[in-house]
Structures are given as structure tokens and as C-alpha cells.
Design a protein around this nucleic acid. Structure first.
Lengths: 338, 338
DNA sequence: CTGTTAGCGCATTCAC
DNA sequence: GTGAATGCGCTAACAG
């Protein structure tokens, strides 16, 4: 048992050719059932394990897709990975997960490494530091299909799978309206970021569709921390502005806003209904009554994988770039209004 | 730009031999600086990217270590992965993360796949379904060093890196004692599971060392859900058993217990001090006053990686099996007792 | 159905 | 310091 057995070892032991062994191991139809059995049992006996490196080198495919995310620990990404893995495994593909930890340098190295290891496709959610796109532009002449998901970037020639933030904002607002809310506050984030702009646009569109006038003082842009929501509500309510609903662009600010309302419950004429985009399942535990908008990481992962697999099998490298929008799902909880 | 350029392409373009190119790319000392420069610039020009598959096949090493965990989304494992990656990258190794999702079948496939892909070492935290160890026993004659971390299993010939649950239980209990607690409840888990047994033993040892008598009615074994902690406290307190401290084997049950105490604050003579092993950072948010015992995933990952790297470089496959215990760290919060 | 031959891309002998 | 030759382990094309 000096070195790992190869197909040649089992060929020699069986006095047949290694190519026959290879075919038998790959369950080729052009091999007798009898020899297949002999080969398989001998392989078992010798403790043979196929060397994928050699196989992949020869076939020039790895049956592997590379995934790059900022952090696996974030709920959205770990559910996206779930969706990616399920879809990939069903199609017989392996997955390599890598995290950039929001660092450009790391992302570069990872992408280069995955290319050097000849993954068949690439799924990328870029880091926050990724403002320079050279390493991604390079991917164009690597014959590897690349899909961006969630965090995309402004380069032509790649497809994206993104959350439909506009629709999410619309649905959230509509949900509040259908509950009877007429004075809906929107706690928004930095308007330079597309996601917050889109959610805001969705909010406005819903108001318009239901004939509710949009007031600027109902919208508050912040860094979306818990205290931002708290302070926003405080300001609005102390000004005696009427409020019966709050749509927050994330869960933290929603929780802060709820906190203030709860503390001041004597002063608030009626309970306010809340909806917030959720980043982590934590919000469910802290505020079970918060209706959340789930960003469907699983679905995004699934769709992105299906897309990249399509590109891989079609072998058509001049893919048309297109963007697929995935619905965010409203998860209704025991709402305070009826 | 039909196919990916190889060292031969750049050799041909430079009218030198591919072996020289190979040496130049590997920064071999036996090649002129001048040719190195020429090779490198040509490589850049052609967009050459080394084929790691071929390189690894030839060298028979992959510079990669495989990691198998039940779920990447669990806080303990994602911090362990952090520790693994940091340590591995510093040593120039790549990491492949795989999740078994607590399924034996999946774990088997993953392990086989990693072996087939010739990872240089393996770090495994087994799934809950892993009661049959055949696929792990097989690893013994694969010349791949394997370390189990956190979730180990009862096979000889492998090393383990584990949390020192006994010490954790001891430290937690000691912490309460030093705060003046004399009547300390222990909310424990299923005693079939070693971790809970060990934490319990630590509890008893601390009591003994500080001369506090151990009473059986202070210990409550459950499935450690939030309501278990709640009910346990309810039972004890309605029986008028004196309590001034609680050591919970996990955060959920601690939170449940605190909840009951808070609700009944009129009946409780003095505030009770709490310590609980924390699984997720959620507990920090829900109960900021809960002193927790962090399971130091990062540290475990780091140590396990150092160990496997040592085995890899030493190339000594007859590794002595040993077990390394890692301290769990007490994270003291604004404790209720003084 | 099986054997022969050739080579995937690279790194490492051994010559010179 | 560089070139020529060889092979890592496997698969595919072509015979027969």
C-alpha cells in the first residue's frame, strides 16, 4: 500500500487495459457487465479512488461552479448558498464557496484562484470595496460564464439576478394601505444606493396607485440603525404628525421605530402597523409582530444557478446580458391593525 | 483567442522551451532575470492563467484543505470557518467549505468528493446522523491527514480539537459563586450527549471546590428550548426553593428562565445572576444582561488548521491521535448581582 | 466489446 | 541557464 492505486494498477491485476478500466468505472455502455463487475470489485479491493484532477484535466471540465460572497454568515447569503447548492447538486455539479469578507484584494485573489482551478461557472456577489472592476472585466476572455447576484456591478456583458426592490417597496406599502393605513411613514436608507432608491420608488408608486398623497415629511433617510428608526419616530410623533403605518427599508430601523412607539404607548392614539425588509431572522425573535419582507436568498441562488448552468451547457460564450428580478416575499405576522 | 493559452504558447512566441517558461513562472533561481521578465510580460500579454489542475496533478498536491461542517449558517461554524481560512491563507493554502446539512448521505458524498479532488488535508465536524463511521474509517488509508473539530466521533487514529466543556461549566459556575451566589440552578441538556454531561460535571466540580453542597433538585435536564428554561424556573420558584444563580447549558434556556424571573419580579426577593453557553449572537440582542460563554469557534478553527497543516508538512501519516481542548470564554455583561 | 495510441498542461529529471 | 525528454492519471479517438 505504498502509493494510491490508479486505473493501471487495477488493469494490471485484471490483465486488461487501463482504458477498459476507465470505461468500466464510468459505466460506459461499451463494456460487458461481467468486466464491469470485476473492475468494480477489484477497485473496491484495492481501495481505488478516482483522481479527479487527472480526469478534469483530460476532460477540460470540472463539474464545479465557484461562488463568491462577502460573508457566509449573513443570513441572505447563507440562504442563497443553500439555493445554489441544491440546484447545482441536482444537476450533478459541485460548488466551491468563497468569502471576500468585503475586501477587494481578497475578492481578486479568489476570482483568480477559481479561474486557475477551472471552475465551469462563476456566481458572484461583489464586496463593498469592489469599485474597480478590472478583475471582473478579465473574466470576459476566460470563457467562463459569470452571473452576478444581489450585489451586481455596472459592467456590460454579464447577467444579473437581483431582488425586485421596487416591487418589494410597493408590496410593503400596499400591504399597509390594505390594512387601512393612510398616513404611512417611510424609513429609508442612503439614496445613493440603488436598493433604497428602488424601495422608495415602490413606496411612492403604491401611494399613487391608491390615491394617497405623498408627503415629503413622511420620508426619512438614514443609516438604518436601530436608533435611527427610534429617533425618526420620535421626531415625527412629537411634531404631532398623524401616523398609522411605517414601512422601513430594513428590520433594524423598524425595530427602533417600534421600540419608541411601545415606550410612548399612552400618547399614541392607535397602534401603528409596521413592515420592514428583513436582513436576519433575528428580527423575528426580537419583534415577532413585525411583518417582514424576506429577500428570498434561496430563490435568488436557485435562479442564478439555473442561469449559469444554462450558459455552461449551451457553451455559448457570447451570452446576452440580461437582468432577472426576483420577488421579495411579504411575511405577514400577527399584525397590530385589523 | 480560440483556446486558453498554455506555457507552450508563450514558449513558442518567445522561441524558448516550455520548461524554461515553467521555471520562469515559478520564479526558479535557475533562470535569467531577463528571460523571467520576458516570460512574465508575454504571459500578461496573452492573458495566460496557470492551469492549476495540471500543476496539481503533476505535483500531486493541491494546496487545499477541505472542510466539512453541518451548516455554515450556524454561528459557531461560521466563526470556525473564519479561523480556518485565516490560518490556511497565511500558510498559503486554499480552503473548500462543504456543508452536510446534518445528513449522513451528503457527508459521505462530500468526503468522497474531497478525497477524489485530492485535498491535502481534511477538517471535519460530523453531522448528527453520523453514527456509522465507514466513510471516515476509509480515510485512514487515503494518506490524507484528518482532524475532527467540535463534533468528533469515536474512532481511533484521528486527532480532535474540542471545546473544554468541563472547564466551561466550571468557569460559569465559579463566576456565579464569586458573585456571591450560593444556590445555583443548573439547566442542563440530554445527558447522553457528552457536551452536556461535561458541562454538568464542571458545575459539580466548581461547587465542590468552593464547598457548596450539591443538591439534585437544582439540576434540571431538558431539551434546552426557551420554554424549558421558563418552566424549570417556574417549578423551582413556586416550590419556594431559594435561588440566586442560574447556569444554563445554552442560551435559549437561559433566556426562558430570565423571562420567567422578569415576569415574576414581585415574588423574587433579589435578582438572580445568569450564565449561559451561547450558540448564536442573537442572545446578546435579546438579553444583553446575560453573561455568556462563547464557544470560541475561531480559536477552534485556527488550532484545528494548525494541526492539520503540521500533519501535511510533516508527511507523517502515522499521526499519533490526540485531543486538544480549547477554552470557552466567559463574556461578562452588566451582571445583575454585584 | 476491448486494446492501442495519443495527449490534456505542467514540472521535473537529466543532459549540455 | 536552457532544452529535450518523460510522465502525473485519466479519457477519447481510432482500430480491430
Amino acid at each position: 500500500m505504498s502509493n494510491k492505486p490508479t486505473i493501471h494498477d487495477i488493469a494490471k491485476a485484471l490483465r486488461i487495459d487501463s482504458s477498459t478500466v476507465s470505461r468500466a468505472l464510468n459505466d460506459s455502455p461499451r463494456v460487458t457487465k461481467a468486466t464491469k463487475v470485476r473492475v468494480l470489485s477489484k477497485a473496491q479491493e484495492l481501495g481505488y479512488q478516482r483522481n479527479m484532477l487527472a480526469s478534469n484535466l483530460r476532460k477540460n471540465i470540472t463539474n464545479t461552479i465557484g461562488v463568491v460572497v462577502p460573508r457566509i454568515s449573513r443570513h441572505f447569503f447563507s440562504s442563497a448558498i443553500q439555493g445554489i447548492e441544491e440546484t447545482a447538486y441536482l444537476a450533478g455539479y459541485n460548488v466551491i464557496i468563497c468569502q471576500s469578507l468585503e475586501q477587494l484584494e481578497r475578492e481578486k485573489k479568489i476570482v483568480d484562484g477559481l479561474v486557475a482551478n477551472r471552475v465551469d461557472g462563476l456566481l458572484i456577489s461583489v464586496s463593498m470595496e469592489t469599485l474597480n472592476y478590472d478583475h471582473l472585466e478579465n473574466l470576459k476572455n476566460s470563457r467562463i460564464p459569470v452571473i452576478f447576484f444581489d450585489r451586481h456591478c455596472d459592467i456590460s456583458g454579464f447577467s444579473n439576478v437581483l431582488i425586485d426592490d421596487f416591487k418589494g417597496g410597493f408590496d410593503a406599502t400596499e400591504h399597509l394601505i390594505l390594512q387601512g393605513c393612510k398616513h404611512i411613514v417611510h424609513l429609508s436608507g442612503p439614496q445613493e444606493l440603488e436598493i433604497y432608491k428602488n424601495r422608495f420608488e415602490g413606496y411612492k408608486a403604491a401611494l399613487k396607485q391608491y390615491g394617497i398623497i405623498y408627503y415629503e415629511e413622511y420620508v426619512n433617510s438614514s443609516r438604518l440603525m436601530e436608533q435611527d428608526g427610534y429617533i425618526s419616530m420620535q421626531k415625527l410623533l412629537t411634531k404631532n404628525i398623524p401616523i398609522d403605518g411605517v414601512f422601513a427599508a430594513n428590520d433594524l430601523s423598524a425595530i427602533g421605530a417600534m421600540k419608541y412607539v411601545k415606550e410612548q404607548h399612552i400618547k399614541i392614539p392607535e397602534t401603528i402597523a409596521f413592515v420592514g425588509f428583513s436582513n436576519e431572522p433575528v428580527s423575528e425573535i426580537i419583534e415577532p409582530s413585525l411583518t417582514t419582507i424576506d429577500q428570498s436568498g434561496f430563490e435568488i441562488g436557485k435562479v442564478a444557478t439555473q442561469l449559469v448552468l444554462k450558459h455552461i451547457v449551451s457553451k455559448d460564450w457570447a451570452q446576452p446580458e440580461h437582468t432577472i428580478l426576483i420577488d421579495a416575499h411579504l411575511i405577514e405576522r400577527n399584525s397590530s391593525k385589523k
